[in-house]
């Protein structure tokens, strides 16, 4: 209070010191509040961020028996926690792809009549090599390898 009153002049240095002290104290106070707020909100922000799930990294899955899939047909099988599309092109030829559309993640399907892979979400189509034929998908489907082990169809990541 006093230092504001002209009738009681205070030496310049003292005003400066007083000011400095006040500035320092408000900085400390402000900083303390900011730090404590940060310490409240940091855990909340971290809490909102979902924990990283270990991706079940499979390299190989058994996708069923040969005789269960007729020629010129396809089916969705689990490949780890993602869907894969297994296609029996004809009696002897098999193909497999990640079934996750490269556009916006829908699950694709095999279209027997047109011998194409089709995504219902935005009408994207791929050929039997996984290449984009039409529609919005920007990239080809990831191809997987198919092996026959006796009468068992086995899908694996390509190396």
């Amino acid at each position: 209070m006093q230092r504001n009153e002209p009738s009681q002049p205070v030496p310049d240095g003292a005003v400066g010191a007083e000011q400095n002290r006040r500035t320092l104290i408000s900085w400390l106070l402000g900083g303390g509040i900011a730090a404590s707020l940060a310490s409240f909100f940091y855990p909340v922000a971290r809490f909102l961020d979902p924990p990283q799930m270990a991706e079940a990294s499979v390299n190989e899955v058994a996708a069923g028996k040969v005789q269960d899939l007729k020629p010129n047909s396809g089916k969705i099988v689990r490949f780890g926690n993602k869907p894969a599309l297994l296609v029996r092109v004809n009696d002897t030829e098999w193909k497999a792809f990640s079934a996750v559309c490269t556009h916006l993640n829908c699950t694709v399907q095999y279209q027997e009549a047109r011998r194409e892979i089709w995504c219902a979400c935005h009408n994207g189509t791929y050929d039997l090599d996984g290449r984009v034929v039409s529609g919005p998908p920007p990239k080809p489907l990831e191809e997987l390898a198919v092996k026959l082990r006796g009468d068992e169809v086995v899908i694996s990541r390509r190396v």
């Binding site: 099988v77 869907p83 599309l85 079934a99 829908c106 699950t107 694709v108 399907q109 979400c121």
Partner: peptide, 10 residues
């Protein structure tokens, strides 16, 4: 069903 194809007409 996450392990099925997206249905037509979505």
């Amino acid at each position: 069903d996450p392990f099925s194809s997206a249905p037509a007409g979505i």
